[in-house]
Design a protein around this nucleic acid. Structure first.
Lengths: 126, 126
DNA sequence: GTACGCTATATCCATAAGAATATAGCGACT
DNA sequence: AGTCGCTATATTCTTATGGATATAGCGTAC
């Protein structure tokens, strides 16, 4: 039988340059943290975002903590208690960080798109 | 006393986009592997390159192995025995891979240079 | 044929990263 | 006052990563 495309995760098609902003050996901002910020903005909580991204709350919390430490102002603020038990929100500052990061991702990606394709040709079937 | 700048490793100034080419969850090519290729090309052996980069031979060998598996042709060929006990060389194909990767690094870096600087302003003193 | 230095590989160990779990605290709402 | 769901944190366990070490095999030079 023809092999059915089995829920492929990263394949050659996913190739893209990754921007990683380092801060004292830790990643202050990268693809994963950007996704997390978007998920927190969407869901309004760290734990909901973690569930959506299928990671542990602990890990999500640590990522948020790393970001908040790296930037001059918090990118995420939290509150405990309240009707929903608490929650988290991406600050305006955080949204700006995210926006600028996304811009960088797009620019970098566009700038190497052509080269990336010829690179693909040199690789085995990812 | 004033705290003297203690042999800083990565600081804000080092910020640059990283290109990582993935192959089945493994990094087929990235900054570290590119450096290793350059070191092998320079030294003519995996172990000398490993020493130069202060990593274990095992690790260097694994990195080479990953690359060779990811690409259609080997990027490094080795020979055992001989006057120097053996050695390794970056193939012409490997040099092309490296060349193209370096080009991508430069282009991506240039394309986001401006944004990267404003990003820096939002971060704490790295 | 012995020595040399490198490749190639296996084994074991230390450390780091992350998952899972447990628990405390909080505040709005009922 | 009690419930709820989330933040915040500690603890334990598993797994992954890499370092260190040991050994075998190889071919040239001596």
């Amino acid at each position: 039988m023809a092999k059915s495309p089995p829920s492929r995760k990263s394949s050659k098609q996913d190739l893209k340059p990754q921007i990683r902003i380092m801060f004292r050996k830790a990643i202050a901002m990268g693809p994963g943290k950007a996704d997390l910020l978007r998920a927190i903005d969407e869901t309004g909580s760290i734990s909901a975002a973690a569930r959506q991204m299928e990671m542990s709350y602990r890990r999500a919390w640590l990522l948020v903590d790393t970001m908040n430490q790296a930037f001059k102002s918090p990118v995420v603020v939290t509150l405990t208690g309240g009707k929903a038990g608490g929650g988290a929100a991406v600050t305006e500052f955080g949204k700006e960080v995210l926006q600028r990061y996304s811009t960088m991702e797009e620019k970098a990606s566009a700038s190497v798109a052509k080269e990336l394709r010829s690179f693909t040709d040199m690789m085995n079937g990812g």
